[in-house]
């Protein structure tokens, strides 16, 4: 069944269709929250909260954007709220997620080192800038779409993305973390 058909059924109260839609978009939401929070437990909790909010508000979804975009928008707001409430900081996910970097031990160590630098680099970027950057870099949303998701002007989105990529570029090219 197409997303549009599933949406019509879900909005008219069909639980199975809504479950299918949420299942189809689970990875996008969870991956986004995992990249944003860098913590599996936080990402899991927020994914469940996102799904719950989507179930409650499915009738309010107007279909102006893709269902995934709507979910990402809910997840972004929940992440912001979570940060405000609990002042959650980035935690290292190295212990929780195994790296599958092939057989070469030397290469694995190098990749791990690079990954650690990358995570540190991402962690020093302020959350609101990181949100915009992740949406652009990993999900390829346009500046306009990101502005709608994060409820801020397009110019702000652009400057946040520029700041993030410049910062990451400097760090990954061997520059110091500030």
């Amino acid at each position: 069944m197409l997303e549009a058909e599933l949406l019509v059924a879900a909005k008219s109260g069909d639980r199975k269709s809504l479950e299918t839609l949420l299942m189809d978009n689970y990875k996008i939401v969870f991956g986004y929250l995992l990249k944003l929070s860098m913590n599996e437990d936080t990402a899991r909790d927020l994914t469940q909260e996102t799904m719950t909010k989507a179930i409650v508000n499915i009738k309010n979804f107007k279909g102006e954007s893709k269902f995934a975009t709507w979910l990402i928008s809910i997840a972004s707001n929940l992440f912001k709220d979570a940060l405000k409430k609990k002042s959650r900081t980035l935690e290292n996910i190295d212990e929780k997620i195994d790296l599958d970097a092939g057989e070469d031990v030397e290469q694995t160590i190098l990749t791990r080192e690079k990954l650690a630098i990358l995570k540190n680099a991402l962690s020093i970027i302020p959350e609101e800038m990181r949100q915009a950057f992740i949406l652009k870099h990993y999900y390829n949303y346009s500046y306009e779409e990101i502005a709608l998701i994060l409820k801020c002007p397009v110019g702000t989105v652009r400057s946040r993305i520029h700041y993030s990529i410049k910062k990451l570029k400097t760090v990954l090219e061997g520059g110091a973390l500030e």
């Binding site: 995992l34 990249k35 990358l118």
Partner: peptide
């Protein structure tokens, strides 16, 4: 690399 690390 972050995508390969996060094997969802």
């Amino acid at each position: 690399l972050l995508d390969s690390d996060i094997n969802i």
